[in-house]
C-alpha cells in the first residue's frame, strides 16, 4: 500500500527504441510522446511533419520539445522511433517567411511600456529601439490560435509575467512574457506585459493557411 502512494517513482523512465541512438521521450497519456528536441526543435518538427507517419494524428512543436499525438489505440511504430533519432541528427528547418509588423508603441496601445522601460533601465525610446532592432524567430504557436512565441527578445528586455493577468488585452497587442515576445491574435485575458499594438490578422479560420505565422518564421517589428 505504501507503494501505491508513490506509484510514479519507478515508472516512466526515458524510453528509447533499441537499435538507434537514444532520443529521450516520455509518455503524455497513452497517446502523447513528448520528445526532447532542444535546439533542433524546428528542424525535427519540419522533418516529422513531412514524413506523415500513419499512426500520428498531430505533431506539436513547443519550447525545446515536440509532442507527437498518436491516433487513438495506435502504438508508435519502430520506424517512428528510429525516425526520431535520425531527424534529430540531420534536421534542417523548413524555409522561413520574414514578417515585418508595424507597431504603435506605448500610450493606450502599450500600457506596460513605461514600467518595462524603467525595469530595463531605459527610456521609452531606447526600449523601443532595442525591441525593434532585434530579429525574432517563431518558436511555436500556442496559448491562442495563431499566437506566436517569439524567440530573440534582447536579454535586457526579459521580464517575468504580470503577477495578475489583465482581464482584457486587445487583439494585436504586442507583448513581452519572460524571455519571449508575442502578439495576441484575439482579444481576451492575458498575463504578458503589453507594450504596443499591431494592426495585423494573425489568425482567421476561414483563411488558408489560417495562421499568418508558422514555427520557424522570422519577425521584425517596425515602429509605426
Amino acid at each position: 500500500m505504501q507503494d501505491d502512494l508513490n506509484p510514479l517513482r519507478a515508472s516512466a523512465p526515458a524510453q528509447t527504441a533499441p537499435s538507434v541512438a537514444p532520443v529521450p521521450w516520455r509518455w503524455v497519456g497513452e497517446r502523447g510522446l513528448r520528445v526532447e528536441t532542444g535546439e533542433a526543435t524546428l528542424g525535427c518538427y519540419a522533418a516529422l511533419a513531412a514524413k506523415r507517419f500513419r499512426e500520428l494524428e498531430d505533431v506539436v512543436p513547443a519550447d525545446g520539445s515536440i509532442l507527437l499525438v498518436l491516433r487513438r489505440g495506435a502504438r508508435p511504430s519502430p520506424e517512428l522511433l528510429a525516425g526520431l533519432a535520425v531527424t534529430r541528427a540531420a534536421a534542417e528547418p523548413a524555409p522561413a517567411t520574414l514578417h515585418e509588423i508595424a507597431v504603435t508603441y506605448g500610450g493606450a496601445a502599450g500600457p506596460d511600456l513605461p514600467a518595462l522601460a524603467r525595469r530595463a533601465g531605459l527610456d521609452e525610446a531606447a526600449y523601443i529601439r532595442l525591441h525593434a532592432d532585434a530579429e525574432y524567430t517563431v518558436a511555436f504557436l500556442g496559448f491562442q490560435p495563431g499566437f506566436p512565441y517569439l524567440r530573440g527578445l534582447p536579454e535586457r528586455l526579459h521580464a517575468p509575467r504580470r503577477s495578475s493577468p489583465r482581464a482584457a488585452v486587445a487583439a494585436g497587442s504586442v507583448a513581452v512574457g519572460g524571455a519571449y515576445a508575442g502578439i495576441y491574435p484575439a482579444a481576451g485575458p492575458g498575463g504578458w506585459h503589453v507594450i504596443g499594438r499591431a494592426a495585423v490578422s494573425l489568425f482567421d479560420p476561414g483563411r488558408e493557411p489560417p495562421a499568418l505565422m508558422r514555427a520557424g518564421d522570422r519577425v521584425r517589428f517596425v515602429p509605426a
Binding site: 502512494l5 508513490n6 506509484p7 510514479l8 515508472s11 516512466a12 516520455r26 509518455w27 497519456g29 513528448r34
Partner: peptide
Amino acid sequence: RLVAGPQSAWFDDRGLAALFA
C-alpha cells in the same frame, strides 16, 4: 486512471501521496 509523466519525477512524495490518496 492516469498514465504517469512526463514530469512526474518533479513531484515530491508528499505531493504524489496527496494526489493518489
